[in-house]
Design a protein around this nucleic acid. Structure first.
Lengths: 114, 114
DNA sequence: TGGTTTCTGCTAATAATTCGCAACTACAGT
DNA sequence: ACTGTAGTTGCGAATTATTAGCAGAAACCA
């Protein structure tokens, strides 16, 4: 998970069973929950499909390409700027966790499709 | 739904059955899907629980209070500013739909809890 | 080494959503 | 009005994603 990629619980399960045959999916869910509580993994609910997990500590935006399904992260301090933009608008609301997901078309697919 | 409130499919079902006894939940889901395609309702996946639907045309941020569960919208052009903040950071990615959900504590609950 | 806690596999349950199909309705053309 | 076609609904069942319960195994600790 340190690659920065996103995985569903089932994908993690598939990979992990390579080295741990007999590993159960529920165990993966339990481990992910523990890691999440410890702040070692972040989870996101994308517009559709199962949750995805990644080894990043803080909430940050996700860009989901409608064409290829690739999930990417905007560069730089986008997360921080979004948080600021939201903070300014939501007076009184104390934001603890920010989930930002944009659906659209990534640069690669836009070029390929025209 | 024109109140601007958020409803789960089941809540809509409960209400609608008042006037339409025998209405099925699957019919509600089907209707919501049709309305969503037509751009008449927007749906959001909150950090937990079922999807919520509302009679708003465009994607806009949601603030979910961890204490009382209330869902609110930040005022003014927060949605637009968020989109701008994101656009600046995600070069090449064409954003078509933006989902923003913040978990935190609303002004009311913050005051009550201290 | 014995006792306690934690973790895991396994199975089953739950929650949310979708699917398949047959009956029903709306409706357009004749 | 009559008939064929398309769209909609009720109903039940299937799927998908996730969680819970429990008993045995493993890890830890005095």
């Amino acid at each position: 998970m340190e690659s920065g990629e996103h995985f569903t619980a089932e994908e993690i399960w598939d990979r992990a069973r390579g080295g741990l045959p007999g590993l159960e999916l529920s165990t993966v869910y339990r481990a992910l929950e523990t890691l999440r509580e410890a702040g070692l993994v972040a989870e996101s609910r994308l517009p559709a499909g199962p949750r995805v997990f990644e080894a990043r500590p803080s909430s940050h935006p996700h860009l989901v390409c409608e064409v290829c399904g690739e999930i990417s992260h905007p560069e730089g301090g986008a997360g921080r700027r979004l948080l600021e933009a939201l903070d300014g608008a939501s007076e009184g609301f104390e934001v603890r966790e920010l989930h930002v997901t944009a659906r659209g078309v990534c640069a690669g697919c836009a070029g390929r499709e025209g």
